[in-house]
């Protein structure tokens, strides 16, 4: 870890200004991920701009649904009555992640920007295109049990480690950001990127943009939801595979469905076409399994993670059975 300077912002616009054009500046809120990365020399900012005092912690009902401030703590969001009533999937996913101590510090914005747990990304002695563009991918040909089976590229097979992001993907969340050129709204499916040949960029967020809120639109058709997380121990482990599922069934027939997968790709994995295809079909294991297979079509395993294909298929079926 190298020495850095520190400044505290009181308004979003000031935060953006304080960050300035310096690429070696970083926002810090809960710090649950950034401080770890700094300790491992994965991130070496010269300057930290503390945004934790900005008034972005509110959780408010809007005419379209719910707006959650970017600095709302994960634990507060998970326990919020509006969230629990309207979007229990988000609450469930948040509580499946990290530990109470971490959730007490971690924010919505920070969780959206959580970086991969790829071993090679974390170890600066090893090659990693995400950390050091052009240095190669250590995970390909290395130890890749936790890595991606979908949407990866020859330059990166890392996964997004967040549970929350998977739920947000199934909830059609919209990320609100502000920057030097004003504010914009980014649908969650467009927010995170696939690696391609620029894996150093996890999201479409520009370097000096600040996340201000996450909007959750009320669903047109009600239904049930479930976040299923498969991991190596009962708590405090990243997902090997996770499924955020929402399903509305009427008379035994699928009326509406969302399925997002975690632990399998560089971003939460959702295929809206597969979901559309399910509508009108009987809510049975056959339908669920064929949707699962369609979601996983084109999966490419590496040496240690082939099990994820079968596991994801079983997990999708189980999650949908749980809510059908």
């Amino acid at each position: 870890m190298k020495l850095f300077s520190y400044a505290q912002a009181t308004k979003p616009a000031d935060a953006v200004q304080l960050l300035g054009a310096q690429t070696q500046s970083k926002f810090i809120a809960g710090g649950t991920n950034l401080v770890d990365l700094m300790k491992y020399d994965v991130e070496s900012p010269d300057r930290l701009v503390d945004i934790s005092q900005l008034a972005l912690t509110q959780i408010d009902a809007t005419d379209k649904g719910l707006r959650i401030g970017a600095l709302a703590r994960n634990s507060d969001v998970a326990a919020n009555a509006l969230v629990m009533k309207q979007f229990p999937l988000l609450s469930e996913a948040l509580l499946a992640g990290a530990s109470p101590q971490l959730r007490n510090m971690a924010t919505m914005g920070g969780n959206l920007l959580q970086r991969t747990r790829c071993h090679y990304f974390y170890d600066v002695s090893q090659p990693c295109n995400k950390r050091a563009a052009g240095s190669g991918c250590g995970a390909i040909g290395g130890y890749n049990r936790i890595h991606a089976i979908l949407g990866s590229s020859p330059s990166c097979i890392a996964t997004n480690p967040s549970d929350m992001n998977v739920a947000l993907a199934a909830l059609d969340a919209v990320v609100q950001v502000t920057g030097p050129n004003g504010s914009r709204s980014i649908p969650i499916l467009d927010f995170h990127r696939l690696p391609g040949n620029t894996p150093q960029r996890d999201t479409v967020l520009e370097a000096n943009e600040l996340i201000t809120a996450v909007d959750l639109p009320t669903t047109a058709i009600g239904g049930k939801s479930h976040y299923l997380k498969v991991r190596d121990r009962a708590s405090y482990a990243f997902a090997l595979v996770s499924v955020a599922a929402r399903l509305a069934v009427e008379n035994g027939v699928v009326r509406d469905v969302r399925i997002a997968l975690g632990g399998v790709a560089h971003k939460p994995w959702r295929l809206p076409d597969v979901e559309k295809n399910m509508v009108g079909k009987p809510a049975t294991e056959t339908t669920f399994r064929s949707a699962a297979k369609a979601l996983l079509a084109g999966a490419q395993p590496h040496e240690h993670n082939a099990f994820k294909i079968q596991l994801a298929e079983n997990a999708i079926v189980r999650a949908l059975q749980t809510v059908s």
Partner: peptide, 20 residues
């Protein structure tokens, strides 16, 4: 390839937690 320990931390070197 190089005998480097790739899970040299308590996030990825798993021991049981209370829930286990």
């Amino acid at each position: 390839r190089n005998n480097r320990v790739m899970n040299a931390n308590l996030a990825e070197y798993h021991v049981p937690v209370n829930a286990d």
